[in-house]
């Protein structure tokens, strides 16, 4: 795998296409494995997409008593092996990011595996391939570095911070609000 997943929460428009795409996947039994949630519903309608971080040393695998969570050569943390999982849900509580889901009926855990069957051939995962606002992207490392540099530059160049007095200065231009 030569590419990486790049998430930008503030680009998320909450359309939930990524979840629909995830449900489409053959082995997923029409259940999505990613999340789209409100950051703070009482403050704004801002949503964020949430996928598995694919930790190098995954807490979910470490707290699994059956040793059911395996890692591929690319470093993708897989769902619990169906034959080993004893259905204790330790992984859902051990994960620092709250990613694994649990199916009580079928007594097994399932989680985002970054569509490892696609990404190992450098094909974008289902969620990234459908995201209309580029909140989820599957891009080259160099491209990601450029995007990150640009973010930092913009913060540095226009490093003024909005305050209660001039917050309208910071509203996007296409909202039609101008300060002068």
């Amino acid at each position: 795998m030569n590419k990486i997943m790049y998430l930008e929460f503030e680009r998320c428009i909450g359309c939930r296409s990524c979840q629909a795409a995830c449900r489409e996947c053959g082995g997923h039994d029409a259940k999505e494995r990613n999340y789209v949630e409100y950051v703070d519903f009482f403050e704004s309608r801002q949503t964020y997409p949430m996928l598995c971080m694919q930790c190098k040393d995954p807490a979910c695998a470490r707290v699994c008593p059956a040793n059911a969570i395996q890692i591929t050569e690319d470093g993708v943390v897989l769902s619990a092996m169906e034959e080993k999982c004893i259905g204790c849900r330790n992984c859902t509580f051990g994960c620092p990011f709250g990613i694994p889901k649990f199916d009580f009926e079928e007594n097994k855990m399932y989680k985002c595996d970054m569509c490892y069957d696609r990404t190992q051939h450098d094909i974008a995962p289902m969620c990234a391939s459908v995201c209309p606002s580029d909140a989820i992207r599957f891009i080259d490392f160099d491209e990601m570095q450029a995007l990150r540099r640009r973010r930092t530059q913009m913060n540095l160049i226009e490093g003024k911070k909005p305050t209660e007095q001039d917050k309208w200065q910071y509203v996007p231009e296409f909202f039609g609000v101008y300060s002068d």
């Binding site: 913060n155 160049i157 226009e158 003024k160 917050k167 996007p172 296409f174």
Partner: peptide, 27 residues
């Protein structure tokens, strides 16, 4: 309650950008 005004500029917002930014060579 969450403090949304945390003093950090979120990029992509509309105060006029400095010319230096626009004149930069695109990669």
């Amino acid at each position: 309650p969450v403090q949304t005004n945390n003093g950090i500029h979120i990029p992509g917002f509309g105060r006029k950008r400095s010319d230096e930014f626009y004149n930069k060579e695109e990669k």
